[in-house]
Design a protein around this nucleic acid. Structure first.
Lengths: 140, 140
DNA sequence: ATTAGTAATGTTATAATATTACATATTGGC
DNA sequence: GCCAATATGTAATATTATAACATTACTAAT
């Protein structure tokens, strides 16, 4: 299909396309949702999407939301692998925001060090109701 | 198979068996690992395991670890749905501990309130190295 | 320029995780 | 005892993710 590209270029282009779709999306997308939206771009296999996601996640451009099995573009660069990432995910509409809560990382680090545990990556996902959905369905 | 039991009793018994296996296990188990270990008890379908897990999770006796797609018996009762649960998961051996870090919940609550977000459940999974695995593979 | 070595990609199949749909069974109220 | 309500059992299928391996393109040695 696009076989003319250089050794790494296809992979990079794939990753760019995946990132572009994620960046435009208003909510986290699953790998297969990405695949659907990328079929017109010549990406036709789940593996290709997963490999692109792996690149993007390594580079810190995308995060995986474990509670949704979905992926979201990183909207800031303040955090590193060593630093906690806090996501708030609306349980109704799945709108997701990435929020800085700097003190959390520090607290966790101190507390877990006591247990001989060294942190590699913290994934904090908060499930709740966004303001909009809370209005519509106040019962929660 | 065990059709003699009362309307809810089979379900309760199933849940008890699932909980017993999880409680004995040294690490989180996936639903299908549970299914394997329960086949001698007459539980032969994934659905049965998932239904038992749903009961146990609702009751707070079991937690789901999103990062592993696995389930673990709750080893304390200090937390409620409103309160953060912090798990530390060794990325090598999957040993998992449930740790109280009370200040985290408070910090998160305050910070997210600013965004009009109301917390329903916080799931905090810390991925790292336990002391044992750090010794064996100091490079991390 | 040719070509072998290396490494990424594409493709297909399949593994692993989870849910749906519906038939069957159990209980409690009448 | 019979019916309604609800839970369970079973089988099929949906969803998410990875494995295996052939193919392609780049690099560098010649």
């Amino acid at each position: 299909m696009h076989r003319r590209q250089g050794r790494e270029l296809a992979g990079r282009r794939n990753a760019e396309q995946v990132l572009a779709v994620l960046t435009e999306a208003a909510r986290p997308l699953t790998a297969y949702e990405l695949l659907d939206r990328l079929s017109s771009s010549g990406i036709t296999a789940a593996t290709t999407v997963y490999r692109a996601l792996a690149r993007l996640i390594s580079a810190g451009h995308v995060h995986r939301l474990n509670s949704l099995n979905a992926y979201i573009a990183c909207d800031n660069n303040y955090h590193t692998e060593q630093s906690a990432v806090v996501f708030v995910v609306c349980r109704v509409c799945h709108a997701t925001a990435e929020i800085a809560v700097p003190s959390v990382t520090k607290v966790l680090d101190e507390r877990l060090g006591d247990h001989g545990f060294s942190i590699v990556a913290a994934n904090i996902e908060i499930n709740g109701l966004c303001a909009d959905c809370a209005k519509r369905r106040p019962e929660g």
